[in-house]
Simulated assay, not measured.
Amino acid sequence: MLKTVTYINDMLTRLLEVLITLLMTGMVVFIVMQVYFRYVLAQPLSWSEELAGYLFSGVFFFGAVLLYRESRHINMSLFVDSIKNPFVRQIIVIVAHLLSFLFLAIVVWYSYPMALQIIDFEVVSPSMEWLKMGHVFMIVPVASFLSLFMLLEVILKSIAQLKEIRQ
């Protein structure tokens, strides 16, 4: 199972790296456009700053997905590293990952219906009437779901390490 999850996560990682690159590129382009239109042409764009903010949200949340895979989120490493027994240390790491998994599952459970409800309300962006806010809000459940999948790989690897320590 670990090999399958790792293979899928490898593909997701490549896809997310491309997506984040595109989002960041778009963000830079729209911000440069805003500066040019505001200060050179004296005709500021009403939508570019807002769109850049939404793109930043995508960079933030999808970047967090990649951090789960690398186990680079903020944690209590000082506490964990102070535990001398490697078996107990690994148990605590697994419990922490499981609690993160539970938290992300709750986020998906509650944020997905909320985003769908916002889509149904047909709330649109104040400066871009073509952009439904529900689609922007959908970033949270999608990124949280992808984080669950990345965290599953981390948990499976941690359990495999626990088995090695036990032997």
Score class of each variant (00 low, 15 high):
D120F: 12
V40T: 04
Q43T: 14
V142P: 08
A160R: 08
E17Q: 12
K3T: 08
A64D: 07
L41T: 08
I83C: 08
F60T: 07
I159T: 01
F101A: 09
I8L: 10
S46C: 05
Y36A: 15
V35R: 03
L146H: 01
F145W: 09
F61Q: 02
L12M: 06
I118M: 11
F30D: 01
L131W: 06
I20Q: 06
L99P: 00
M133T: 07
R166K: 12
L19F: 14
Y110G: 11
F56Y: 15
H135W: 15
I106A: 10
V18F: 11
N85L: 07
H73E: 05
V65M: 07
Q90M: 04
S111L: 06
F103C: 10
K84Q: 12
I20F: 09
E17L: 10
M128V: 02
L2P: 02
M128A: 06
I20V: 14
Y112D: 02
Q161W: 04
L146M: 14
I74S: 09
H97I: 01
S57P: 01
N85G: 05
L19Q: 08
K163I: 07
S147A: 07
A52P: 00
G58R: 11
I74M: 14
I106K: 06
Y112R: 01
L41D: 03
A52L: 06
M1G: 09
M114V: 12
L104I: 00
S158R: 01
S144L: 05
T21V: 12
M11I: 08
S48I: 09
G53D: 04
Q43G: 12
I94T: 05
S100F: 05
M150R: 00
K132C: 10
Q161C: 04
Q43H: 14
F62L: 05
V59M: 14
S57F: 07
I83Q: 08
V93E: 12
F62A: 01
